[in-house]
Computed example of a mutant assay.
Amino acid sequence: MNESTKRPSLLRLVRRPMFWGAVAIAALLLLNLIKDPAYLAISVNPSNGHLVGNLIDILRASAPILMIALGMALVIATGGIDLSVGSVMAVAGATAMEFLKSAGGDPGSAFAALGLSLGVAALLGLVNGALVAFVGLQPFISTLVMMLAGRGLAKVVTGGQNTNAENGMFRWIANGYVLGIPVVFLLAIAVVIVVGLVVRRSALGLMVEAIGINPKASRMAGVRPRGILLTVYTLSGLLAGVAGVFAVSTVMTVDVSRTGYQMELDAILAVVIGGTALTGGKFSINGAVIGALLIATLNKTVLFLGISSSATPAFKAIVIVVLCLVQSEKVRARFSRRRNRGAESGPMPQTALLKLGAEGKGAGA
């Protein structure tokens, strides 16, 4: 491969937003590595054979973010937004904990709680989809209403109290290991693969993108936006329910005020970092995965560096703003123009000097 073919491929790679997301993850890990040279070390717990280390903790923490980012990517691709995913997480977690509190600790109760919580979450997503597709409300308004109503519904389910329960099978979802790797991360990756195959191996992904790019043209082409919107918002609610199960099964407790709090912001950031435009249209599932891993790495870095809780939002904002500026085509174009100007104002090329010398000789003759 010659230099001319390498350069365009490198340019295409640099222009991908997910590339800069991966660079940001590497930079954060390097920052932590500077503080602690053993930060990336992974060891095996001799008592149970599980892998332990900061990277394993990041993978575990990224699972719920990955779920809501995946659903958010599909919703934003249609030109909408889902602000209710954090509240849906709380409702799903509250439903599971309330059921398990009165049920037994057998595996059957765990599966029943799982099905009940995911069913409630999918129903809330279906309500969002119906408000957008059939009632005609703006996605921002309908999901904002659900965000407020969902948090109140979680308090109704638990009586306004934090609820805990005990069930070994349910706890295993977030705290178990398979081949030394956290089960919660493996489940999240399995869900991503399934959703990715369904979306990309069928016409669903194309129809989602068509609705986001031009709803009227897609309707004239035979795409029924109502059914697609209903499917996408229901799927977003279902994935938020999965994230809620991941969150509460870690400690087997639901905090109706904190579970899923501001997770919708992390989901939106992860999607934008991954390259999905907020204006709708094309989306990237791989980019959503990179974005979720970046958010989890950033949260872990904030704790590891000992940044105070009051300054944490500012630190996260700085990292996100810098990353978005690096991804911006306008910013890169401006730097490119400055480099070109610097090259033009630099030393005169040798060929130009020879040409001027030849003209001078001709004039002297």
Rank of each mutant, 00 (worst) to 15 (best):
V145G: 15
N162D: 14
G237I: 09
P225L: 05
L303Q: 12
P37A: 01
P37C: 08
T234F: 00
G212H: 02
F283C: 07
L118H: 09
R334D: 10
V242A: 12
G159L: 09
S249I: 11
Q327T: 03
K300Y: 13
V85S: 05
N175F: 03
V208M: 07
S102Q: 15
T276Q: 06
A90G: 11
R151N: 10
G360I: 11
L238T: 10
F19V: 11
E98T: 15
F170S: 02
V91C: 11
A343I: 13
L124Y: 05
S257N: 15
I141L: 15
I189K: 07
P139M: 02
A110L: 04
S84H: 09
V132R: 10
R337D: 09
I56H: 01
V194Y: 03
T234H: 00
V120R: 01
G129M: 10
A277S: 12
A133L: 08
P215L: 03
S62V: 12
S9Y: 01
K282Q: 08
I25E: 01
S249W: 03
S202K: 00
S84A: 15
K300F: 10
V322K: 05
I307W: 02
K101I: 00
N214S: 14
V132E: 07
P8V: 14
L123E: 06
F134P: 07
A94T: 11
M146I: 13
A113N: 08
L100P: 06
Y261I: 13
N45C: 00
L356E: 12
G49C: 04
A73Q: 09
G152C: 00
I295C: 05
L186G: 07
L353H: 07
A210E: 00
S142N: 04
W20R: 02
G108K: 03
V120P: 02
M263H: 14
A243I: 03
L293K: 03
R200H: 12
S308P: 04
G360H: 14
